[in-house]
Amino acid sequence: MDTLPTQRANPLISRHAESTLWLARYMERIENQARILDVTNTFARDADDTQNWLSIPRINGDLAAFLKKHAQATQRSVGEFYLLDSANSTSVQVCIGAARENARTLRALISTEMWLQINVFHGMIRALTPEAIMADHFTTVCTQLKEGVQEHTGVTEGTLYRDQAWHFYMIGRSLERADQTTRLLDTRFHSLAPQFAANDADLDAGHWNALLRAAAGYQAYRREHPNGYVPMEVAGFLLANTAFPRSVGLNLAQIEWHLTQLRTRYGLRRMGTALERLEDLNAAMTYPNVLSLGSDKLSPFLDFVQGQIADLHGDIVETLGL
């Protein structure tokens, strides 16, 4: 993970640093939206399983905005809201538009290949039509979105020069992943989440299964926990397992490393507040601590973590002196 010290200190314009954070976040957000839509589509009992479809606006914190436009949560209405609606600030349309605008700002800094891929991906998303949310296309479109971001991630890994901008990029990606994972988990622990009776155990298992698959964590979870689902163990896995790429704990640890690199190698001395906040958050993100919370205290904890992630983003931007 170590990078060589640079020959000369290449300065990074503060505004570009912020754009880099947002570029990474918006691209990552598209993948997460696609994952959640896809897995809901797969595991919902049918296209009108409103309980399940409603969980998506809930994850994203835009239940009110959704209900203002749509009377019912169905595959069609939720698909329309997140895949096609360019007036909805959390739709993939808005995300790719914002990602591309940030990439445009950064075009002299990021690799030509990164820009090219984002530009083409943008064209693909902008061209989505109502056909995309028909039952027979839904999964294909979600897969295309997921793969488009994965392509972006791969191109970035292979071509982005690893100086300051790369560190900011990686911080943005980790912030978004950590945030999205808490939201995903919250769908099952939130007081509004569907509650199931004991005889609905199969259904309940199906939902845990779906949740882990949305995070691409099913197989890894199975390796760690071969028998059934214990809700708090799933929570522990997604929050504290530092081997799982989308866990909150791993992403926070990565942010800490990148911030430390920025401070020690590039002389960004103002990272103190952000690092202190991370230290506290990291201390809470352990298996024993998560297990000790119990399911009733988990939802407030997730809210707290989301708030802290937002503040962490704020702390970092604050150091840029914009």
Binding site: P11, L12, I13, S14, R15, A17, Q164, F168, L262, Y266, G267, L268, R269, T319, L320, G321, L322
Partner: peptide
Amino acid sequence: WMRTTSGLA
């Protein structure tokens, strides 16, 4: 000067 991540340069 330009506004950079490590201050004015």
